[in-house]
Amino acid sequence: MKNVHELLTKIADITREIETNYPEVYNYLNEDPMTIPNMEHPSVDETELREYLASLEMLLEKYKKDH
């Protein structure tokens, strides 16, 4: 559970950084309808959180590199 909490904290931190410092990138964080589960209470595990964090880090890194 500690790892999940740490991942959620990191996701919140990088999302806040993007929102505050790179508002033009924040628009890209909208949920893709293909990734939204059609279940009422979907389960999200540590692997999925790691993948989401990695995608946020890649998005921010690419933006910083290109701009």
Rank of each mutant, 00 (worst) to 15 (best):
K2R: 11
K2S: 14
K2W: 10
N3L: 06
H5I: 10
H5V: 14
E6N: 12
L7P: 04
L7F: 12
L8P: 02
L8V: 05
K10G: 01
A12E: 10
A12G: 07
A12I: 02
A12V: 01
D13Q: 14
D13I: 00
R16G: 01
E17W: 01
I18Y: 02
I18W: 03
I18F: 03
E19Q: 12
E19N: 05
E19T: 03
E19M: 05
E19D: 10
T20S: 02
T20I: 10
T20P: 05
N21G: 02
N21P: 06
Y22P: 03
Y22R: 02
Y22K: 07
Y22W: 02
P23H: 06
E24V: 01
E24L: 00
V25D: 00
V25Y: 04
N27H: 11
N27V: 12
L29G: 03
L29W: 07
E31A: 15
E31Y: 06
E31V: 06
D32K: 11
P33Y: 11
P33C: 06
M34H: 05
M34L: 11
T35F: 07
P37H: 07
N38A: 00
N38T: 01
N38L: 00
N38E: 00
M39W: 04
M39A: 10
H41I: 08
H41K: 11
H41L: 11
P42G: 01
P42A: 09
P42M: 04
S43H: 10
S43I: 09
V44Y: 03
V44G: 11
E46N: 04
T47D: 10
T47M: 06
E48C: 08
E48R: 05
E48H: 08
E48S: 11
E48M: 13
L49G: 00
L49M: 12
R50T: 05
R50F: 01
E51W: 01
Y52L: 15
Y52I: 14
Y52T: 12
Y52G: 12
L53M: 08
A54Q: 12
A54P: 04
S55N: 13
S55V: 07
L56H: 09
L56C: 02
L56T: 00
L56E: 10
L59W: 09
L60T: 08
L60S: 00
E61G: 14
K62Q: 14
K64V: 13
K65V: 08
K65R: 14
K65I: 09
D66A: 10
D66T: 15
D66P: 02
H67K: 09
H67T: 07
